[in-house]
């Protein structure tokens, strides 16, 4: 169990570091199809910023910021976004995750629809990876004794 140690230097530095890390994670997710990166890496960085807050404070504080229930809901919502975009392509008559067909409902060019579909899938992957990483860390750090 991680015990709370009130050290003002560690807590202030972590508070200052977390917003740039989260901004960088969002950049990695949103820019994933032009440059190295993507949903998985961005989600990992987003989860790491939360783990940093857990290490600087304690698990109770982490539960106050993001409860176990919210964590489970987020990890399912990400998968739902991913599978939903894939199934939408199936309903419109193309293959699974064939985003080009999405131009029928978004009224943009097929190439633009393909780029937007990739972005949507990566947002879903990022949300799921973030929630699962945080939940793995909380389960390891609390030794499995995890009251709801």
């Amino acid at each position: 169990m991680i015990n709370r140690i009130d050290n003002i230097i560690i807590q202030t530095v972590c508070r200052l570091l977390v917003p740039p890390i989260q901004l960088f994670a969002l950049y990695v997710i949103a820019h994933g199809h032009y440059s190295p990166g993507g949903g998985f890496q961005g989600g990992c960085i987003l989860g790491a910023s939360f783990i940093l807050m857990v290490m600087a404070y304690d698990i109770k504080e982490a539960k106050r910021m993001m409860s176990e229930k919210l964590n489970t809901i987020l990890s399912s919502v990400g998968v739902m976004i991913y599978a939903g975009i894939g199934a939408l392509c199936l309903i419109l008559g193309a293959n699974y995750l064939d985003y080009g067909i999405l131009h029928k409902i978004f009224s943009v060019a097929p190439a633009k629809a393909r780029a937007l579909g990739t972005l949507g899938v990566e947002i879903g992957v990022g949300i799921t990876v973030m929630a699962v990483m945080v939940s793995i860390f909380l389960n390891i750090a609390s030794g499995g004794e995890h009251e709801q």
Binding site: Q41, C44, I45, G47, A48, I51, M55, F137, I140, A141
Partner: peptide, 13 residues
């Protein structure tokens, strides 16, 4: 991101 960042934090936990 994964090998050096997250898994080191998991090991320390």
């Amino acid at each position: 991101a994964v090998g050096a960042g997250i898994s080191t934090a998991f090991f320390i936990g």
